[in-house]
């Protein structure tokens, strides 16, 4: 009987380690639902400590596809959203799920692929034409396939090219950008990526190259949205508004502009808030 008691004491000890970690002080917590690109590029790690220190609040980042991020907002499970799918953001606002939307920044999408470029699309400036050529050749293409902003953008380009991408060459991965880049690298496939994640992954050793860039359709604006606090009493609209004010402030926009320059030789995101635009003019 004693031996079993020792064993149970061991379990209780495990549980002692296990008491749920105390929330750090009583600081307010802000739940930010965002796309994987802002986290995986390192932008949020770069920006957020400043907000947390200056406002005494913690930001919990849940990085998912834009589809799930918007759904989190719709269900009232997040306080603030940072996403890039303009048309769906507008629908979100029109449906009354959000109370405030601001432009934040943009980056651009790039068509990347293996250096030997089997479809021969390199150097072009027309994304839709390049997509059409890939489909025609049947060169492997990895799609995010996760209803994310990047996936939405990719579907736009296919639509513009007038192609319904189906076939063995078209791989719907259902994963984040970083994973899809790794997959494309391994399979010598094309994919559509945001520039930030692409640069970060290249630094870590993938061998994909930018083949098409600069097309207007590849423009990728990010918006920040405060979720409607009428959904439930737990939504922290006050801190959400502070967060948005901070994110679009000239000071933070300067930091967005500086992010990545040291590492990649070029900025990954271009600041684009209302305040920033007014200042630049």
């Amino acid at each position: 009987m004693r031996n079993l008691s020792i064993f149970i004491a061991f379990l209780v000890f495990l549980a002692g380690c296990a008491a749920p970690p105390p929330p750090q002080a009583d600081a307010p917590r802000l739940l930010l639902a965002t796309t994987t690109s802002t986290r995986d590029s390192g932008l949020l790690d770069f920006l957020l400590p400043d907000f947390e220190q200056s406002h005494g609040a913690f930001v919990d980042v849940v990085a998912v596809g834009t589809g799930q991020a918007l759904k989190l907002g719709e269900d009232g499970n997040a306080d603030v959203l940072l996403v890039h799918a303009r048309a769906r953001e507008d629908d979100f606002m029109a449906a009354g799920h959000g109370v405030r939307r601001e432009d934040v920044m943009y980056n651009d999408f790039v068509l990347v692929g293996p250096p030997d470029d089997p479809a021969g699309v390199g150097g072009g400036g027309d994304a839709a034409a390049a997509f059409a050529r890939i489909a025609q050749v049947g060169a492997p293409f990895v799609s995010r396939g996760d209803d994310s902003g990047t996936h939405t953008k990719e579907k736009q380009v296919w639509a513009k090219a007038g192609i319904d991408p189906v076939g063995g060459w078209y791989v719907s991965a259902g994963q984040g950008m970083g994973a899809v880049l790794t997959m494309a690298d391994e399979q010598k496939a094309y994919t559509l990526s945001d520039r930030a994640t692409f640069l970060a992954r290249t630094l870590e050793g993938t061998h994909l190259e930018i083949l098409v860039e600069g097309d207007a359709i590849l423009f990728n604006p990010y918006g920040v949205i405060a979720v409607n606090p009428a959904k439930n009493p737990q939504i922290n609209n006050q801190v959400a508004n502070q967060f948005i004010d901070w994110l679009i402030s000239v000071q933070t926009q300067e930091r967005i502009k500086a992010f990545g320059v040291a590492e990649f030789g070029q900025p990954l995101f271009v600041p684009d808030s209302q305040l920033w635009r007014e200042r630049s003019q």
Binding site: D40, D60, G176, T182, E204, T206
Partner: peptide
């Protein structure tokens, strides 16, 4: 859990994340 850094990131979700990032 949502794989939130410092808060809900555990071994398995961190492995998924770092693999996705190529780390």
């Amino acid at each position: 859990g949502g794989n939130i850094e410092h808060r809900t990131r555990v071994l398995t979700t961190a492995i998924v994340l770092e693999t996705g990032k190529g780390n």
